[in-house]
Design a binder for these strands. Structure first.
Length: 868
RNA sequence: GCCGAAGUGGUGGAACUUGGUAGACACGCUAUCUUGAGGGGGUAGUGGCCAAAAGCCGUGCCGGUUCAAGUCCGGCCUUCGGCACCA
């Protein structure tokens, strides 16, 4: 029996209840069974899910459901990346509390995810803001500290004085604080770091050993790590101010040009800048310059808008090869964070140095000459950066610059003035946040002992959840007596203070996938056995916006865990799928900016703004965002069409890695398809309910029934391949639609017994193939077909090659490669016969017109091409 | 500037493995039937040129390889994404 009308709300509620009551998604580690760990990037609990979540989690859910039917033991968990600044900001705005706000949001979003019918094992749900979670993060921090993998150093951060807080780069807008609007400055602060750079080489190496990752992501990671091979060279300071600092070290990728180095540039933050200028007439100018640079907004440092400027420090150093005096400058384009913070400038062979030399009238010395042309440093208009032959380079003259790179490095090493070295763009991961809503760093500052780790037995260092937030987003921790006051664990000193920095939220997300394996484990970060069984994640799915940070940090953290002997794999994610964005066109009025769809009226065929009546322009298709007012609320879709239609459209409209353009009519198309299938089933159900599906040789069937039988098997083959190998759900769905279109050609009244049995197979198949995509819909039809629930415990359908092979197929005839005719023949007809058949074809002959045939090409089971 | 991806009907997108029938499937549109109407549904059509057939043209552009190119090779253009004073 099947209700006449498809009522998504009713059946979705029914089956969600059924799944929950029967705990169908609960999984246990079972060494007897093949495991499959499917993970989607867990969400930040912002309050409600958006279409990006819907798409991401729908893709994952289809794979999870499909793999379950394929017999795998599937781990498919969900949790919350629950620490972070939005909670603090919202709490300040609503006079609430971050914890309260976060847990309320989690409850709301959990309900929404359940409403989508996702097959999560909810017993494994975790929230990273729970002490039971972050206590293990703190535990690992202590281990990392003990091994020197976590350390503290002084470094520069964006600092807002009025707000008394550090700002993320994203919170600095045009050099001003996003909250108070006052200028941001670079402040030196003591901060905690993870030594990611120790793993730079290994992280880079393994980029080539992750065949299941998109090339794009690997390239981005490689670029981010940014390995450069070169040399470190020391330049003697002419009049050292300090016995210990007699030279300046530089990093260069072009040691072959060292004879052309005519001046030195230091980053403004370089410690030598102030020291070197102190006793010179440049003293004042340099101090002012350095101060001004510290105030400059770093995010505005773009190539075009940024004027290169620098000042002479008053000091000189000596080129170790030429013994020439080189003026030492400080300039805004030198970066303290890269290399050594000092650059040997070779204006003849570096465009930036060239421009700087011209601006400040500095010497240009040519040391690499092109092979086939002349070049003069007095007349050159741009730096020569290509390869060539060394000149003005003493003993290295005449050598190719490529070879000279190695030879000069040897020379430097022999004379102890330099060495071969590698520099990375990647820097150590600064994890300190002067923020409240995060996991406390488990350290104590003792006046006598210095930094003392919190003893393991005192973990977790619980973040006090009842602290009152302060104005401007300042962390309340530094003034919260009951939090900071602690006796030194080492000497008992009563004046010790807790560290008040919290950890970057990316730390929590760097190991949550391991926690999911044993989410309630109390004796460690995770149960080793569970992790050994489930990890690594077989398929990870998420947005490409995490291509660098989250994915790189997770790879790093996995290496840390491995080197501590806690796990025995290096890479956490075997396969990665980065799904595209969900986009929609925006609507804009010249007067009122972006408009919501309800702010547009369309009486005359020309959409107009309801506020001013002006015509509305349709903007580009862009990622859904509040500011563009082009968002679609999943709740509205759920109410109007239900979860199954929403899922169906997300999968059908585009392959997962591409951007998805939202189209309301497309959604309706999906809904119509489900309604049509429903109606078809309701027409046929009485006739097929008690009939066994046909499962014999196609020879026993005739005509249409045989075609339907073949089509059914062919569809199983296509859908299986599309979902499993490529995640191309769009073509999988279209294959099912094709099968359904074939089925729709039959009418229940005039079908033979064999046809009804074949139809029964087709109907079972359609339901099974659709069940991962529209699970509630499939459950309902499955039950109506007389099966016991649940369809998701059924095995995935299989196809037989013998059903697919046809004895007769259609051959194509081409003349000079163009399609001219077709004919039907036995599949195994030999080439000679096929040639004859092609030549006897009437339509073909028209094209031949008695012209001589040069050649005939026969492709087995496909075509004949006649060349004239 | 460097790195990466993508350009196919009015639209989203198909064309797999290995070059072999371009446009599957859907949206939209047109005609028509059904209904009191709205909605919904059914049927037929739908790359361009042509009244139609025949035919010709057609996968960003130019060239090449091949019996045959959306697919392979060389060069260019455009769009999107990432990084960007990295020494």
């Amino acid at each position: 029996m099947l209700d006449e009308k498809y009522n998504p709300q009713a059946i979705e509620a029914k089956w969600q209840r059924y799944w929950a009551e029967n705990r169908l998604f609960k999984v246990k580690a079972d060494p007897q069974r093949k495991k499959y760990y499917l993970l989607e990037m867990f969400p930040y609990p912002s309050g409600k899910i958006h279409m990006g979540h819907v798409r991401n989690y729908t893709i994952g859910d289809v794979v999870a459901r499909c793999m379950r039917m394929r017999g795998y033991n599937v781990l498919h968990p969900m949790g919350w990346d629950a620490f972070g600044m939005p909670a603090e900001n919202a709490a300040i705005a609503n006079k609430s509390h971050p914890a309260r706000w976060t847990y309320d949001n989690i409850a709301a979003m959990r309900a929404q995810l359940k409403r989508m019918g996702f097959s999560y094992d909810w017993d494994r749900e975790i929230a990273t803001c729970a002490p039971q979670y972050y206590r293990w993060e703190q535990w690992l921090f202590l281990k990392m500290y003990a091994r020197g993998m976590a350390y503290r150093k002084e470094s520069f951060v964006n600092w807002c004085d009025p707000c008394q807080t550090v700002l993320a780069n994203e919170q600095v807008e045009a050099g001003l604080c996003w909250r108070c609007g006052k200028p941001v400055r670079q402040k030196k602060l003591w901060q905690w770091f993870f030594r990611v750079t120790d793993y730079a080489d290994d992280l880079l190496l393994y980029c080539d050993r992750l065949p299941g990752w998109p090339e794009k992501v690997l390239t981005m990671q490689k670029n981010w790590i940014g390995k450069s091979v070169g040399a470190e060279i020391r330049f003697e300071i002419e009049n050292p101010v300090d016995e210990k600092e007699r030279d300046i070290a530089v990093f260069t990728t072009r040691p072959d040009t060292v004879f052309g180095a005519t001046f030195m540039v230091l980053a403004p933050e370089h410690p030598l800048v102030i020291k070197l200028s102190r006793n010179t007439s440049q003293n004042q100018v340099v101090a002012e310059f350095v101060e001004r640079m510290a105030l400059q907004d770093r995010s505005a440092k773009t190539v075009e808008s940024f004027e290169k400027e620098g000042v002479f420090t008053g000091a000189y150093c000596i080129n170790p090869m030429t013994r020439m005096r080189m003026p030492v400058f400080t300039a805004n384009f030198a970066l303290m964070e890269y290399g050594t913070g000092a650059v040997m400038s070779v204006p003849a062979h570096d465009q930036r140095d060239f421009e700087f030399a011209q601006k400040y009238g500095l010497d240009i010395i040519l040391v690499v000459k092109p092979l086939d042309s002349e070049l003069d440093e007095n007349t050159m208009s741009a730096a020569y950066i290509a390869d060539g032959i060394l000149v003005n380079s003493g003993p290295f003259d005449g050598m190719s610059n490529k070879r000279a790179q190695g030879e000069i490095i040897n020379y430097l090493e022999e004379h102890h003035i330099g060495k071969k070295t590698v520099s990375f763009r990647l820097r150590d991961w600064g994890i300190s946040r002067q923020r409240y809503w995060g996991a406390p760093i488990p350290m104590i500052h003792c006046p006598d002992c210095g930094i003392v780790p919190v003893p393991e037995t005192d973990l977790p260092v619980v973040l006090p959840e009842d602290a009152d937030l302060l104005e401007g987003g300042r962390s309340p921790l530094p003034v919260l007596d009951r939090f900071i006051r602690v006796a030194c664990p080492r000497c008992g000193h009563a004046g010790a203070r807790r560290e008040t920095d919290t950890m970057d939220t990316f730390v929590e997300s760097s190991w949550y996938f391991e926690r999911f394996c044993s989410p309630h484990y109390t004796k460690g970060m995770f149960n080793r056995e569970a992790v050994d069984y489930w990890m690594p994640v077989d398929q990870y799915i998420g947005g490409v916006e995490h291509a660098i940070l989250h994915l790189l940090y997770s790879r790093y953290y996995t290496r840390v865990l491995r080197d501590m002997g806690l796990i025995d794999y290096k890479e956490p994610f075997t396969r990665l799928l980065t799904q595209g964005m969900v986009c929609k066109e925006s609507l804009a009025c010249a007067e009122h900016g972006f408009l919501l769809p309800e702010e547009v009226e369309d009486h005359t065929g020309m959409p107009c703004c309801t506020k001013c009546g002006r015509p509305v322009s349709v903007g580009r298709v862009e990622k859904m965002s509040k500011s563009k007012k082009n968002v679609v609320d999943p709740n509205v879709l759920l109410e109007k069409y239900g979860a199954d239609t929403t899922r169906l459209f997300c999968l059908f409209a585009a392959p997962p890695e591409r951007d998805l353009e939202w189209n309301e009519q497309g959604v309706e198309g999906g809904y119509r398809f489900l309604t049509r299938v429903w109606r078809f089933f309701s027409d046929w159900i009485d006739g097929v309910e008690t009939v066994a599906p046909f499962d014999g040789s196609p020879d026993l069937l005739e005509g249409g029934a045989r075609d339907l039988y073949r089509k059914t098997h062919a569809t199983i083959q296509r859908v299986t391949r599309d979902i499993e190998d490529r995640f191309h759900f769009n073509t999988a769905i279209s294959a099912v639609m094709e099968l359904f279109n074939t089925m729709a050609g039959f009418k229940p009244g005039d079908a033979s017994a064999a046809t009804v049995a074949t139809m029964r197979l087709a109907m079972d198949t359609v339901v099974l193939l659709l069940s991962p995509i529209v699970p509630h819909f499939a459950e309902e039809l499955w039950q109506a077909l007389g099966h016991e629930p649940s369809v998701l415990q059924e095995p995935w359908p299989t196809f037989r090659q013998s059903v697919l092979t046809r004895e007769e197929i259609e051959f194509v005839v081409q003349v000079n490669g163009k399609l001219r005719s077709r004919f039907t023949a036995d599949a195994d007809t030999d080439a000679e016969t096929l040639k004859k058949m092609a030549l006897s074809d009437e339509r073909v002959n028209k094209f031949l017109e008695d012209r001589p045939i040069k050649k005939m090409i026969v492709v087995k089971k496909k075509l004949v091409n006649i060349v004239i």
